[in-house]
Design a protein around this nucleic acid. Structure first.
Lengths: 134, 134
DNA sequence: TTTACTATTGATAATGATTCTCAACAAGAG
DNA sequence: CTCTTGTTGAGAATCATTATCAATAGTAAA
């Protein structure tokens, strides 16, 4: 698994490999529970706690993005190409959007606030096709 | 309390009034627990459950915005003037930003996805002054 | 004003996503 | 092999939020 840098003192375990590989297969931004179900199809012995720990580890290694979105469950994404997320306020579903002009923030305002924005993987609230009446 | 529309069949109770008034006094985007503490200073008898219910009610009435932000606790804002929120990925603190050019999303992309974005009250991740080394 | 009805409340239990604990295990260095 | 340290599975604990329920308080009709 070339994804995970060898430089760390942490190991590339079979569990972590499966979690990342399964996450790379889908584009549905699954919850930890859903990742667990995907992982279970590969290896019944992997526990939910390990899935949570592996996801934390992969987020730490910047190989996976954690989305807070709406809803109580976090969602995960292993697609690292620059894009933002359209998050439905009603049903919580998340879809990708690759054609978004970057947000422009007034530089004076920024300086005043001393805030360093991370505009990649922005989460844009709204209503998806199913939930939007219009 | 002129804020709450009379058209609904719901009542303007003392508890709801206090919650909204306390929230209007601050610009710190408090959590429900923090709102509870503010409310307690006005009326010891108001319960935490009522604070949660009042906040839900006020969000429903579109008098208050609920922020999911980072961290596990939701945060609330009674400032309805258009602005976005700068959310620190590290400490979870939220600050306001009033000078942001709206995000531009490719109309073809939008059409394809059938997504209606709500660009008000956008939450922009980043690092605040304290957490940003630079 | 009574009465009936419904919304609201405080207290507390329940929920559920996530994190923690801990004994067992595994990989690598010496 | 042995020591050290990271990792795992199982299950308990945490904690923000929501649900339950009996009591209460407006409100509208009689």
């Amino acid at each position: 698994m070339s994804y995970i840098p060898k430089s760390t003192c942490y190991r590339v375990t079979p569990q972590r490999r499966i979690v990342l590989e399964e996450l790379k297969k889908v584009c549905t931004h699954p919850t930890a529970q859903e990742v667990y179900e995907l992982v279970q199809k590969q290896d019944k012995s992997v526990s939910l706690a390990t899935v949570y720990r592996s996801l934390d580890f992969l987020v730490e290694q910047e190989l996976v993005i954690k989305l807070k979105a709406r809803g109580k469950q976090a969602r995960y994404d292993a697609d690292l190409t620059q894009h933002c997320h359209l998050v439905c306020k009603k049903c919580g579903r998340v879809s990708d959007c690759f054609d978004v002009e970057k947000l422009k923030i007034d530089s004076k305002e920024i300086g005043k606030l001393g805030f360093c924005p991370c505009l990649d993987y922005l989460e844009i609230p709204g209503l998806c096709r199913e939930c939007c009446g219009c």
